[in-house]
Design a protein around this nucleic acid. Structure first.
Lengths: 143, 143
DNA sequence: ATGGCTGCAAACGTTTTGCACTTTT
DNA sequence: AAAAGTGCAAAACGTTTGCAGCCAT
C-alpha cells in the first residue's frame, strides 16, 4: 500500500509544486481508494476540503496524476470518465459496483488465455480491458 | 449471419417505420460488419447514400437500434462512442484494431473463470466487458 | 523573482432536445 | 388522418484551453 506522503513526494520528485488545491485533490483520491470516482465527485469533495477549487484545476491535476501513473482513468459509462488511485503495482482488473462505485480487484487476468489466439492472427495487442459490473454484497439487497 | 432483410423486419416488428434515412443508416452498418464505426462516420457514409440525413436522425436511430439489440455501442477512446452490428447471436468479446477499426471475435470468455470469485464475494454480476485493443496484421506494419 | 499553478470565462466536440414540418402507414 | 420520423437550431454535457494574476519555490 502507498502512503499519502509517497504521493506528494512523487509529485515533488517530478518538479510539481505542492499547492493547497493539489493536496486536497490528492486527499480526496486517497480517501476513495478502491473506488472509481468521477471528476465531478472529486471536484465537489475537494471543495469541501478547500473551497476555492476549480474544475480546470481538478482536470489539470488529474491529467498530471495519470501521466505520473498515480491514478487510473476509465470510462465506466457513456461519456464520463472515472478515476482511481493506483495502490497496487501489479497489472489487474476490477469488479465495479454500479450503485456505490466500490471496486475490487479480480485476481485473474484473461490475457494469457488468449495470447496464442492473438499470435495466430498476427494481432499486436497494446491494451486490454476486463471489467465486471454489478452489485456488491452490500448494495444488492437494496436495489 | 443475419441478413439485411432481417434487420428491416425487426424494426417493423417493433413498430418502427421504414424511412429512407433509416434504411441508409442500416445499410452503412451492414456494410461495416465486424468494424466499430463512430456516429460521425455513419453520418458521412449515410449522406453518401442519401444526402438529406441529419446528425440527430443518426443518433436517434442508433439509440433505437441499440435498444432493439441490433447494434452494440462501446467507447474505444475518451468521449467518442463507436457502434457495430451484432451479427452473431452468442455472447462474445472483441479484438479491436485501433487504426482501421476492424473487430474480430475472441473465442474465449473470461467470465466462467471468475464466477467462483464473485460468488465468494457475494457480488451479483450484471455485465462484463473484455476487449483487446491493438493493431491488426494489416495495420501493424504501417503504424 | 521566476516559474509553475490557479480561476475565470469562453470554446470545444460529441450527443441530446424542442419544435415545426414531412413522411409512412 | 394519425402516428412516427425528420431537419434545424439551440442546448446540454463533460472536458479543454487561453490568459491574467497568484503563489510556492
Amino acid at each position: 500500500m502507498i502512503g499519502f506522503k509517497d504521493l506528494e513526494q512523487k509529485l515533488k520528485d517530478n518538479g510539481y509544486k505542492t499547492t493547497k488545491q493539489r493536496r486536497a485533490i490528492l486527499q480526496v483520491l486517497y480517501e476513495n481508494v478502491q473506488r472509481f470516482i468521477s471528476a465531478e465527485d472529486i471536484y465537489n469533495k475537494t471543495k469541501e476540503k478547500f473551497n476555492t477549487t476549480n474544475f480546470s484545476t481538478v482536470y489539470r491535476n488529474l491529467e498530471i496524476l495519470e501521466r505520473l501513473g498515480i491514478i487510473h482513468k476509465t470510462n465506466i459509462e457513456d461519456g464520463i470518465s472515472v478515476y482511481e488511485l493506483i495502490c497496487h503495482r501489479e497489472h489487474h482488473h476490477h469488479i465495479i459496483c454500479k450503485k456505490c462505485g466500490k471496486t475490487e480487484i479480480i485476481d485473474f487476468c484473461p490475457f494469457e488465455n488468449i495470447e496464442h489466439i492473438l499470435d495466430d492472427k498476427g494481432f499486436e495487442a497494446t491494451e486490454h480491458k476486463f471489467e465486471v459490473y454489478g452489485y456488491c454484497s452490500k448494495c444488492k439487497s437494496d436495489v
